[in-house]
Design a protein around this nucleic acid. Sequence first.
DNA 1: TGCCTTGATGTAAGCGCTTGCATTACGATA
DNA 2: TATCGTAATGCAAGCGCTTACATCAAGGCA
Lengths: 343, 343
Amino acid sequence: MAPISAPRPAPTLEDVARAADVSTATVSRCLNTPGKVSDDTRLRVLQAVAALGYAPNFGARAMVSRRTRTIGAVIPTMENAIFARGLQAFQEELRALGYQLLVASSSYRQDVEEEQIRSLVARGADGLLLIGHDRAPQVTEFLHQRGLPVLVTWAYDPAQTGVSVGFDNRRAMRTLAEKTLDLGHREIAVITAPLADNDRARARVDGIRDAVAARGLSIEGLRLIETDYGITTGGDAFAALMQTRPRPTVVMCGNDVLAVGAVKRARTLGLSVPGDVSITGFDDIDIASVVDPALTTVHVPHRAMGAAAARCLIRMIEENGAVASQELDAHVTWRDSLGRPPG
Amino acid sequence: MAPISAPRPAPTLEDVARAADVSTATVSRCLNTPGKVSDDTRLRVLQAVAALGYAPNFGARAMVSRRTRTIGAVIPTMENAIFARGLQAFQEELRALGYQLLVASSSYRQDVEEEQIRSLVARGADGLLLIGHDRAPQVTEFLHQRGLPVLVTWAYDPAQTGVSVGFDNRRAMRTLAEKTLDLGHREIAVITAPLADNDRARARVDGIRDAVAARGLSIEGLRLIETDYGITTGGDAFAALMQTRPRPTVVMCGNDVLAVGAVKRARTLGLSVPGDVSITGFDDIDIASVVDPALTTVHVPHRAMGAAAARCLIRMIEENGAVASQELDAHVTWRDSLGRPPG
DNA sequence: TGCCTTGATGTAAGCGCTTGCATTACGATA
DNA sequence: TATCGTAATGCAAGCGCTTACATCAAGGCA
């Protein structure tokens, strides 16, 4: 391939029509309803299409046909395996249903998310996949005004309106916290992703609080550090928590990446897991079973969730009827990083 | 938010114009060149915009202004951390430069990739980011015909034409293989992703062959298994290779995920790494330093590559001049999974 | 032979937007 | 007061496409 030259103006239907010596209508029919065109005309047109490198202008087509068969998705980041896997499944299912996926990411920023949502809507998305419920009212209002099918996923919160396909972050984390308490842990510390603008992270922390409060224990004693997503940041938070007294006997992490950071740092600090301190994760991504000791965590059915979300969203679009939210099961997966408290 | 009702027809510029009692031209100016409109008119128009939930129709806008400030990217899969991180950096840099990113994935299938490329082009992408050089000639021809700026990344192959920002997979793997040979390994086995349609994977294997051949050793002795991306598949391949005789003293893997699978399986089989068998990876994603023993692998500067790719592609678009390919450094990172051969 | 059906193709409107040009109003200048 | 520049706004063309409707040729039938 020779180096790029000046961007040539894209060939249009009319260029093709001229080259094939037919009208634009005939070219259009060749492409959309080939049965309505005679064989030799079709052949001539298709040759012209190939020769000119013609590709129909999507904007023009969408403008007149009012449908794009495109779904937009805005995720917080592509960098997190947790979204990646679910989104891949989402896209595969969408493809099978004849839709195309366009992804944008918001870097966990509400303002960027709004921008991306508007952009996807402007691009004619027939429906939208969004993560979690946290967003400015004006965005929700905008979407609602449009009557655009929107599906929220990675979360299932019965208190929220709107359709969602996801799991109950709060209840799942509560279950894990209860098991932790059952083992006898009382000095609980928490490492979480930043809570602002992140209802999933908040729900997980609330789940821990629920469990603690239900046992009649004090919520005040709960030490909590918010930190950015990352192995190193998780390790730093862990080190800081282990300085507090009484020393935590378990560190519950809001996601597996933070937990892996904690486990690795524990080793550096000469602490045995779970002998000296237990550590738990959330998400059950690959890394959870790779680290040593393997993480006790909450398993989230990413792929199933992505596929279910795709089917649900398409149903909203095509049948245009009331579609029910769907709760998926997220259950505790026992491995080795959670044990009895020391002593 | 109430349940979605029938998708309302999106409000148009004309609706806004009517509501604000001005012409469509004025509304357009309010949105694009607010300085050219009087203060009170602008206020009135913006109120109407908000009230109606108006969002400009992207297709119509692109059609007349011939620029979309949109970059398309087609990656093999979102599920692989290696692409995720680089792409996130790519998108962040793009945003800083005032462009929007649209991502599509091909599931490692050339036909799907072609479809996605055409779709992104039809959507008016000002430029394209593609992974690797392997694609059907008709696609390359199509892109070239369009004169559309295309940047290839994740690979830097001096033999290829076209602009790329990446690293030399072959040379990097050759270097790692040479170190392996230096340690005394002679029974080398290889686990790789499927080689068809994947020039990066082929280049890596070729790098190993280069090193072996340069020592005057036989290439025939190289045992090689192709398998899909995954920890389990990597483990299975490893187990199969360890059945062959003479038993490999080192298993070189085409990527970290396969290598992690191999390491985990080695433990299951009761083999010590690197005592009984050495294992190497490629990519240096998070998981490489999480697994025990940590992987000796090739470090790829994902984020730097993504950011550099963004800058390079935008330069191609805006300055429309000849832009040089850029080779980034990918170097061996020593950790613990590679040692001397046993005995 | 004349009329109608059928299939293939052309004509032209209009989708929502931007923008060059025309128009208007108004204050400044001579 | 006549003239002009300027700022604000409107008018209308046209971007590339689909599609309802019109047209036309060819063959079937009475």
